[in-house]
Structure formats: C-alpha cells, structure tokens
Amino acid sequence: MTRTRGEAAVTISGLVKTFGRFTAVDQISLTVGRGEIFGFLGANGAGKSTTIRMLCGILAPTAGSGTVAGLDIVRETEQIKTRIGYMSQRFSLYDDLTVTENIEFFGEIYGVYGARLARRTAWILAMANLRERQDSLTGELAMGWKQRLALGCAMVHEPEMLFLDEPTAGVDPASRRRFWELIYAAAEQGVTIFVTTHYMDEAEHCDRLALMHRGRIIALGTPAELKDGYMAGTLLEVRAEPVMAALERLSSLPAVREVALFGSALHAVVGGPDEADDVRAALDAAGIRVERLAPARPSLDDVFVALIEQAERGA
C-alpha cells in the first residue's frame, strides 16, 4: 500500500445533494485522516447513505467538492472505485454461489487474479473463519459468517479505504464484537474506515464521530469531546420510586430541560449542578422516594438526544 502519512483519506467541502425539492445532504464539510475509524451517525434519512454514495463515486453531488484517497469524487470516480471497499447493511453476496466463488468473483471484478487471488482468498477464509465452509453455498451460512464474508469480499483487492454502511444491522452481539475486532485489525494495517451505525456502543469504538441530522452535521469530534463539550447543562442521574411518577414530575419542572428513561434510572438535564437540590426537593414534595440523585457523565445517547432536540428547536 502506498500512502502518504498525514494526508487526509477523505475531505469534503460544502457538499450538497438535492433530489428535486428535497435536500438530502446540506452543505457538509469534514476531513478524515488516514487509518482513522470515522463513525457516521444519525437517524434513517439523515443523509448518511447519500453521503457515502457520493464519496464512493456512484452519486454525483449537486454542489460542493470532495476527495477520497486524494482523488476527486466528481471527476475521478473510476479510480476511486478501485481503491475503496464498500459493504452495505444488506450483505450483498450471491446466496447461490459458494463462499470461494463469491470471493473469486469479486476478486476478479477488482482485477485480482492468479497467485494474488489465491493469497487473498486464503486470507479472507482465515479472517472470516470460513476455511471449513469454503465450499458451502453462501445462503446456508449464519448471519455473522455472511457478514464477515461480505467484509472479506469488500477487502479482496486490499483497498486503502473501507465504507461500511450499517455493517452490523441485525447481527447478534457476539458476532458484532468479532466484526469490530476485524475492523480494528484493518485500521491497524492503515486502512481508513468510514462506518455508519445505529449502535451507540459501536460509536464508542470510533476514533471520531459525526452526527448527521436532516442533511447537516450537527456535531463532530471524538466520543470524549462530544460527551464533554457538546452538552449544554448538567446531566442528573435519578433513581426514584415510583419511577413513572418521578418521570412525570420531572418533566413538569421548569428547571428540567429534558428527561428520559434510561434502563431503571432517569436522566434529567438541568442548567447547572446547583439545581440538583431544587429537583430533589420537588420530588420529595411529590412524595417520591429518591434513592440517588447525582450529576453523571452523559453517554453518547444523552448527547445525541440533546443535540437533536436542540437542532429541532433551532429549526
């Protein structure tokens, strides 16, 4: 792999995509460094997949510019395609081909032949732990295996960049964990990973995150930066009985900006730490037994819920 250290793997500047009157991607700009695991978060329809499609060179931007692996996403789409791997949530493999036939098919389409193809096939079979099942029809594999095979096929030509569009949707937690181990391994080899996900625990694995909402990036940073810097106010973790009554009481307090149920606890956002006593007093007055009420470090979920509500209010 020829790579220039420090050069950006992805740069986007003022990227816009409209479909008729609908603006799917609205003026986004960002930079992803080589070897970085970059997480792309947001609800369905937030514009993540559209952005990925523009970066992969299969959708032309309406406005703005960008580069992938130093290549222009408008003019050099053909070269981009040979240097990236792409895997979507739908495990786009041929069910009626065997494991090896799938690998060989995608390999040769990417121009990987002969000894190199044999080497890559062996590598993928080992990576996905599919050596014993190499002649099974792909349709007969369990989801977790299919997903690792799909990742392998996306990497058959040793791309310097991987686009993963919700790669772990619908897969059991153990398989998800193993999948992320493979992603880490690839990143250690210097492959840049651009991944979209719905799972917050997966988002924590990323080096940096961008949160998309209605076509815009509303937050960008490392998971720690997002948790510390993006939240206006203080998060209180509240454990109280009965919890539903507490939720109702909290949402009626003017000091509480947001409140949500989190497992068996409640997360309430207030202006500052000194408002905790007022909240406790209000709950006591309503006859609710408070077991614990203390400022807590927000999770990514808290941050994103808060950011999206903030964006909605601003809109």
Partner: peptide, 14 residues
C-alpha cells in the same frame, strides 16, 4: 432486489 447490484455499482465494473 437482493442488493448485489448496489455492490456491483461500487466496483470498477462499468
């Protein structure tokens, strides 16, 4: 329907 066309489109296949 099965999504492989989407996969083929991101390959160098014209």
């Amino acid at each position: 329907e099965i999504g492989t066309l989407e996969q083929l489109v991101v390959t160098p296949l014209s």
